[in-house]
Amino acid sequence: MAPSGALPILRPMLATPGPLPGAGEEDAWAFEAKWDGARCIVNAPGDGTLGLVTRAGNDATATYPELASLGERLRGRPAVLDGEVVVLDSEGRPDFGLLQRRMGVTNRRRAAGLAGECPVHLVLFDVLHLDGRPLLEHPYEERRALLSGLGLGDGPHWSVPAHVRGHAAQTWEATLRGGFEGVVAKRLTSRYVPGVRSSEWRKTKHLVTLDVVVGGWTEGRGGLAGLPGAVLAGLDGPAGLRYVGSVGSGLSGRERRELARYLEVVRRDTSPFANPVDVPGAHWAEPRLVAEVTFSGWTSADRLRQPTWHRLRPDLTRLD
């Protein structure tokens, strides 16, 4: 229990991975874009100051100095808000690769310099405590209305994006076109349970399927010694085969053993990729094997984001 007049120390409520609610139940849910960023609890005591706490419980106030003016905007309205810190690319889409430049920086001078070079944006989507009143037991729909009523609008480095009641399919298509990571569905009657991964909130990611060429591999560790821990993936381009990332997640033990046999047959001494491969201990292979992978988007360095192995495509094996 927080002392009188003090803000409570809260952890963010988390969503459970799962499918979007179907047509028969979607009217009981609200849908928001899933932002590819860093979750933060925002503490605004109402005196013009602001504190930011990460999902891991670390103080990130000095890391994102450009958000300090939000505290002034909330002067006289002590509040605890829930949101996500993101960095937007030139097309307004969240880019986690750009955000990584900002994360964990505690030196104030360095953080201020990065704020000018690569500013963050705070997406606000919940209010947990307002004007000395706890809101955790209030339903999502009511909390959202209170958040909208704060009049924060689109600040210089923050916003309160819209949510959609019902219309799951339309939200899915809109976020896919907009380059967002996915959709978060929140039951309209859901209470806020700090630190808990609740089925009352569901997250569904957009995944893209792609055929890639295997141009090498890296050895696994421990029980995977001698076997591919990850394969090095490429795509054909005007300059030749372009390295786009390593894929290890999703490979079964059987597939690793099978790949080891295939890769031994097509091994080579030099890289088949036209661009540099920033992977230590790489083993090279003739670009013959084709694999199907899923991924959630592209990083700013043109690498696959969160790639997962799906299957080998022997029907697409390259013979030339």
Score class of each variant (00 low, 15 high):
residue 2 A to Q: 12
residue 2 A to Y: 13
residue 4 S to R: 09
residue 8 P to Q: 05
residue 13 M to I: 01
residue 18 G to T: 03
residue 21 P to Y: 06
residue 21 P to V: 03
residue 22 G to N: 04
residue 23 A to Y: 09
residue 24 G to M: 03
residue 27 D to I: 01
residue 29 W to I: 00
residue 30 A to N: 04
residue 33 A to Y: 03
residue 33 A to K: 01
residue 45 P to D: 02
residue 49 T to H: 14
residue 57 G to E: 00
residue 69 S to Q: 11
residue 70 L to A: 05
residue 74 L to W: 12
residue 75 R to L: 11
residue 76 G to A: 03
residue 80 V to K: 11
residue 83 G to Q: 00
residue 85 V to E: 02
residue 90 S to R: 15
residue 91 E to L: 11
residue 91 E to S: 14
residue 93 R to I: 06
residue 103 M to S: 08
residue 109 R to L: 12
residue 117 E to A: 12
residue 120 V to W: 02
residue 121 H to W: 08
residue 123 V to G: 02
residue 130 L to F: 15
residue 132 G to K: 15
residue 133 R to F: 09
residue 134 P to T: 04
residue 135 L to G: 06
residue 142 E to F: 11
residue 147 L to D: 04
residue 156 P to S: 14
residue 162 A to E: 10
residue 162 A to T: 14
residue 163 H to W: 13
residue 169 A to R: 10
residue 182 G to K: 00
residue 187 R to A: 14
residue 190 S to K: 02
residue 194 P to K: 00
residue 198 S to H: 12
residue 203 K to A: 04
residue 207 L to A: 10
residue 207 L to S: 09
residue 212 V to K: 12
residue 223 G to V: 00
residue 226 G to H: 14
residue 227 L to D: 04
residue 229 G to K: 04
residue 230 A to W: 10
residue 234 G to R: 06
residue 236 D to A: 15
residue 246 S to G: 12
residue 252 S to N: 13
residue 257 R to F: 09
residue 263 L to D: 11
residue 263 L to V: 14
residue 264 E to L: 11
residue 268 R to F: 15
residue 269 D to G: 15
residue 277 V to Y: 13
residue 280 P to G: 08
residue 284 W to S: 11
residue 293 V to A: 13
residue 294 T to I: 07
residue 300 S to E: 10
residue 303 R to E: 08
residue 303 R to F: 15
residue 309 W to V: 03
residue 310 H to N: 11
residue 314 P to Q: 06
residue 314 P to I: 04
residue 316 L to S: 13
residue 318 R to G: 12
